[in-house]
Write a protein that binds this DNA or RNA. Structure first.
Lengths: 297, 297
DNA sequence: AAGTTGTTTTTTATAAGTAATATGCAAACG
DNA sequence: CGTTTGCATATTACTTATAAAAAACAACTT
């Protein structure tokens, strides 16, 4: 059976839009709402049906009207609005990075499936998807080998990352003056500066900015393999930093400054300076990752 | 139900070993045979059981003896000795590269499953595995988009390949004199020279040599992401060249000469020359791939 | 005509089930 | 005692089944 997490998420999103006054229930067609939420009309209709059933929306001859105010309890819990796939990912990452799973451990699909409360199929699909991250390896007609979230992994990851980043940075510098990416880079600079000023309160926002900067640089000359590789980085950082809170404020503040130097170098077009600032940022990012692995071990 | 392709392959392999006289049935333990074939003892026992049932092997008080000669008809057909997974891969590659599947085509799991004679799950697992090749892309809660085996794909592939190859070649040149890889490189040179002399008869053997050379070079400084990327190259070339026979002899001969120049450069340690010969080989490989894509289109 | 809604058909995301294979344990053998 | 075999159990590689969601079709509005 397929879960109805898509519906529940769409339902919550619709409630939110209604609550914010962003959509007018009497003047919004199914199709418009569909486009807004990014879901099929079938699901939109199910949402509208539920809204009526709960009395939040009422249909009369003149069309739809608001039935009653939206309560907090109308929202489905977050857990029910995400797919099994997402749950498997989160639980696996937790099992791998936070549990004391040792390098060399054999991964058992059946056992993980029971542990995570899903069918073996879901675990298997996840592992196949996850295998490209270089942390696990399939054994023929047997399970998977966990190679370990080790220093070697971090070093290999960064060797590639540095190659790709330098390549993209150089290509970025060669963009024509009228490229819209320059404007985006300038905007990012401003956002970095603002975050630096407000660093105390919202230093968590850094990782989103980090992602945006590096993806912007990659966009100078798109290459699907580089993009895919960046997905690896994103996932690793997402989970790893989520659980590594040590010195987070200082680390992020330092990284923002490195970013700003890097951005300035890009804006200046000075090839040497670009390389220098890029490498400095890469090196410190690598050090941070390696150090946190060592601490965990 | 799980297919018994592992058993059938093991059975065929055992017949072959017996026929070659490589194993002595009366003096080989289950465990020794297991290690030899690379399969579990459970399967080995099934094989031995089948050998007895067919009268190929006989068990008496003194132990096992040969019952009768092995016939060609004793072997299981090849098709039954490979997993469904392998079949799906082959059929999908054929569908993608040989059929006139257009870029932008939406891939339908159900339809492919019916076409290939497997359950949808098998197709899905294959597609997940295949997605890292950069040719397809998942659409949320919908099918997969075939992005096309296009010139853009080939160029992006080769941009990365060149980066990785140059990196590995330089590191290879820096290997200490006593590294065993130097000997392997010298052996490969000899094999290239022999193949060049016998090129008329066995030019198909080139692709295996190609693979060995590049993987050897990567071994100078292993990086799992580079290895994984080389899997992409291997698969693409395997299928693409399997069906692109035009000028195959000339192409392979030229490539062998390029390899020899590249190997000599590596042996000489001349950094400039390494770069030059490496780039020349990469460029011509890229040209070949791009041209064959254009022909197909 | 173009957009809107109602209905039917197709496809996906997941679960459950099953024979083949791998793994683990114990008895028997040398 | 270390190796071989017999047997029981666990795990994998699949197939089949099903509700949710998407897509396609058709009728109905402006």
């Amino acid at each position: 059976m397929k879960p109805d997490s898509v519906f529940k998420k769409a339902f919550n999103r619709t409630l939110q839009l209604l609550d914010e006054g962003a959509v007018d229930i009497s003047a919004t067609s199914e199709n418009a709402l569909r486009a807004r939420i990014g879901v099929s009309r079938t699901t939109v209709r199910k949402v509208l049906g539920e809204l009526q059933a709960r009395g939040i929306m009422r249909i009369s001859e003149d069309g739809a009207t608001v039935g009653r105010n939206i309560l907090k309890s109308d929202y489905f819990p977050d857990l029910e609005t995400t797919s099994k796939r997402q749950h498997v990912e989160e639980q696996f990452m937790e099992w791998m990075l936070r549990g004391d799973t040792q390098p060399g451990t054999l991964i058992n699909e059946l056992q993980l499936a029971r542990q995570f409360g899903v069918a073996t199929n879901g675990v298997r699909e996840f592992l196949i998807r996850f295998s490209r991250f270089g942390l696990i390896e399939k054994k023929q007609n047997s399970g998977w080998l966990f190679k370990g979230f080790t220093e070697a992994f971090a070093l290999e990851l960064f060797e590639i990352r540095v190659m790709f980043e330098l390549r993209s940075a150089h290509l970025f510098a060669e963009l024509p003056d009228d490229s819209p990416l320059w404007g985006e880079l300038a905007d990012l600079k401003t956002e970095h500066q603002r975050l630096l000023r407000e660093i105390g309160g919202r230093f968590h926002d850094f990782s989103r900015l980090d992602n945006r900067l590096h993806r912007l640089i990659n966009r100078a000359a798109p290459n699907r393999f580089i993009d895919d590789f960046y997905d690896v980085i994103t996932l690793i950082f997402h989970y790893h930093y989520q659980w590594n809170k040590k010195d987070e404020l200082q680390r992020n503040e330092a990284a923002i400054r490195e970013h700003l130097a890097y951005i300035d170098a890009l804006l200046s077009g000075d090839t040497h300076e670009i390389e220098r600032t890029c490498l400095r940022h890469m090196t410190s990012a690598r050090t941070t990752l390696v150090r946190s692995i060592q601490v965990a071990a």
